[in-house]
Design a protein around this nucleic acid. Structure first.
Lengths: 215, 215
DNA sequence: CCTACCGATCGGTAGG
DNA sequence: CCTACCGATCGGTAGG
């Protein structure tokens, strides 16, 4: 499993080292990737500038050249990481409420590719939320946005009469709770099944609480 | 908020420094408490033997006298921490399925006293699960036990005809997902309301999925 | 249990 | 961007 992770990072680096298409100003992107790999391999507690520099392939001074302090770098990295999750969700373009909610939950609770590695990285960053106000605010904003997406689609469904007239904000919070619970359990208990189970739980919830039973 | 934490730890220390009732062999308990406070105040990434020793009120060598390595200490501490949660749940003695499930969820999703501090400590320890097999196994065992309690009470309810004939294991996993999600959100987003909301979500789930509608 | 100390490593900087 | 280096701090141990 440890090897799988390293491989993933090697693959990412390989992809990115390919033909020099865009300007070298993408050093930032490279450092973000290096941070991602170093974090995934060592965890937040053992994440050092030196290890990031090793993944980056340059010296520690090179890292400090782009980011004055370790904190600056990590704040930027958390934005980068949360964007990865947002991007996935933005792939859903359907507007039909039932279908859209279904697909949003799919994106939030499965989808993968590199999902497991992303979830580990997220867990590590989350663990610093009680101590770094910046992190906490970034995570709050992300949660708020995802909740907004859910609340909106639920409201639309209610207006169209396909969902029961429930408290849309509460329903959105409930689904976010299931999402966070699934992610935590998947990574902490090392149980990939946790996401699949939670996807079903979310469906239970939608079917039983939101869905109008046409009979 | 930072002050509130420190105060909590001071209070705990005060309680424990009171009349010398039991033998001094309780140094272990004192070190566990010191670790709890140091962890709560600084987070896992900045948890050092020195800081634990400061909370303990003795030298770092004193800590190493009882625990050979930092790892040994932290493994013992995780057991200690998880026991705190288990103890709370064990206060539920009711056998009536509906009432018992209700009270179990209360204990898992509210109860507090020092709940928030306990949740922060848990989050910190969880963040090391991907890197320390021992931690992961301890957390797996804990989750398994709580799931067992839920599955059992659900099965009893089904036998007695007060719950629908659902997959008890899946229902238990769903509730555990909600519990983990609530804890994560409460601490990471610093939203005490997350627990209350999730308690309602759990009720939604129980009412809609488990409860037989007698009509 | 304490004092004193070990080698290793940390984030960050000076000077180029 | 690199080499070389800074003071501070880490987990752990020797000797008592």
């Amino acid at each position: 499993m440890g090897n799988a992770v390293i491989d993933t990072c090697r693959i990412i680096h390989a992809m990115e080292d390919s033909p020099g298409e865009y300007a070298r100003s993408d050093s930032n992107e490279e450092i973000m990737l290096a941070t991602y790999c170093a974090l995934r391999e060592h965890g937040y507690a053992d994440l050092t500038i030196k290890r990031i520099a090793e993944e980056y392939g340059k010296s520690t001074a090179a890292v400090h050249y782009y980011y004055e302090t370790k904190d600056d770098l990590l704040v930027a990295f958390l934005d980068y990481l949360l964007d990865q999750f947002i991007d996935t969700v933005h792939e859903v373009e359907t507007v039909d409420p039932q279908q859209r909610l279904d697909l949003l939950l799919d994106k939030l609770l499965t989808d993968p590719a590199d999902h497991r590695n992303l979830l580990v990285a997220l867990l590590e960053m989350q663990s610093q939320a009680p101590y770094k106000i910046t992190f906490r605010e970034q995570l709050q904003q992300n949660d708020e946005y995802l909740r907004y997406l859910l609340r909106t689609v639920i409201s639309h469904g209610i207006e169209e009469g396909v969902f029961s007239d429930v408290d849309a904000e509460h329903a959105a919070q409930s689904l976010m709770t299931i999402v966070h619970g699934a992610r935590t359990r998947a990574v902490v208990l090392d149980d990939p099944n946790a996401l699949v189970t939670a996807r079903r739980t979310a469906d239970d919830y939608v079917d039983a609480v939101l869905q109008t039973n046409p009979e």
